[in-house]
């Protein structure tokens, strides 16, 4: 039941130099893969591009063939209420349950803002969020 909320994100290692993001995006475009959301985390000289796409397996294969280092990561998507305190509520639920948020990024979904989370205990997080009345996106929304 919790599993249906686990979304398969692709993560791509990228050097921090011009044209790398264009190379990733171009490859996905050529393969007709749709990107719903993405974020870039950067560090000293390198970064990680994270993306939610409609065909993660195809994207993985495509990018690996092009020489990129790619992996899958399990994330969840929380629908945010468009009012003050929306983020605080979700963070509070997870914090109380001692679940650590490793990173988060947001995108504007069809009918509400969506927060993508990577947490250290994904199934626990799903239970807690649903239990507290929160709304999660099903993986089938994307794939």
């Amino acid at each position: 039941m919790e599993k249906s909320y686990i979304i398969k994100q692709i993560s791509i290692f990228s050097e921090n130099r011009p044209g790398r993001l264009a190379a990733v995006a171009g490859a996905l475009k050529e393969a007709g893969i749709n990107i719903f959301a993405f974020s870039i985390a950067e560090a000293d000289g390198f970064g990680v591009v994270r993306a939610l796409v409609d065909r993660p397996e195809d994207a993985h294969r495509r990018l690996t063939d092009l020489g990129f280092r790619v992996s899958f990561t399990d994330v969840i998507g929380v629908k945010m209420r468009d009012e003050p305190g929306g983020l605080s509520e979700i963070a509070g639920v997870l914090g109380d349950a001692a679940i650590n948020i490793e990173y988060a990024y947001a995108y504007s979904g069809r009918d509400a803002a969506v927060l993508i989370l990577r947490v250290d205990q994904v199934e626990d997080a799903i239970r807690k969020i649903l239990g507290s009345g929160g709304e999660l996106l099903k993986a089938s929304t994307f794939h």
Binding site: S11, A43, D44, V70, E102, R118
Partner: peptide, 18 residues
């Protein structure tokens, strides 16, 4: 070069490796 096994999408893991 980063290997397949070592690639984590958490920046902190990569910084630790570095």
């Amino acid at each position: 070069e980063i290997s397949e096994e070592a690639f984590s999408d958490k920046i902190t893991d990569l910084m630790v490796l570095k």
